[in-house]
Amino acid sequence: MSPERVGGRVGGARAQIPPQRGRGIDNVVVLVEARNDEEPSLLGLYHGIALTDRDSYYAGSLPDTVTIYREAILDICNTDDEVVEEVAITVIHEIAHYFGIDDDRLHELGWG
């Protein structure tokens, strides 16, 4: 699947976020890259300061980022439908970190 098609799936995944949560996302950029050089099997990564950890020093900060690693996702998927599902899971998982939800809780919720 091309980078453009995966990027389109990222937008579709963001649309699955409940509106009350989606409106709360501010100053976050979602990127699609080929692969994480340090951890090649990593599917996605949130880099920033979770809402639950922000203080008055956060004002004026650069945007937080969610990076989706296209090649790692393609490595574990056999069909386009699986790619769509995995992109959605990964995007929602990483954006959940923005809201301060940790990996243990995400696994409990089925978004591990």
Rank of each mutant, 00 (worst) to 15 (best):
Y46R: 08
Y46D: 04
Y46C: 01
Y46V: 01
H47I: 11
H47F: 13
H47M: 15
G48T: 02
G48E: 03
A50S: 14
A50V: 01
A50D: 04
A50R: 02
A50I: 01
L51A: 02
L51P: 05
L51E: 03
T52Q: 02
T52P: 07
T52S: 14
T52A: 12
T52G: 04
R54T: 07
R54N: 05
R54A: 11
R54P: 00
S56N: 04
S56T: 01
S56Q: 05
S56F: 10
Y57C: 08
Y57T: 15
Y57V: 08
Y57F: 06
Y58A: 10
Y58P: 06
A59K: 07
A59D: 14
A59N: 02
A59T: 13
G60R: 02
G60I: 05
S61H: 10
S61A: 14
S61N: 10
L62T: 12
L62P: 12
L62N: 12
L62E: 14
P63T: 08
P63I: 07
D64G: 05
D64P: 06
D64S: 04
T65R: 14
V66C: 07
V66T: 03
V66E: 09
T67N: 03
T67I: 09
T67K: 04
T67E: 04
I68H: 04
I68T: 04
I68A: 07
I68W: 04
Y69Q: 11
R70H: 09
R70D: 06
R70I: 07
R70L: 09
I73R: 04
I73S: 05
I73E: 08
I73A: 09
L74K: 14
L74Q: 15
L74T: 10
D75C: 05
D75M: 04
I76H: 05
C77N: 12
C77E: 12
C77V: 11
C77G: 14
N78S: 15
N78W: 14
T79W: 10
T79Q: 12
D80M: 09
D80W: 12
D81M: 08
D81I: 11
E82M: 14
V83A: 06
V83R: 00
V83Y: 03
V83G: 04
V83N: 02
V84W: 08
V84P: 06
E85I: 02
E86A: 10
V87D: 03
V87K: 01
V87G: 03
V87C: 03
A88N: 07
A88L: 00
A88Y: 00
I89H: 09
I89C: 08
I89S: 10
T90D: 01
T90S: 01
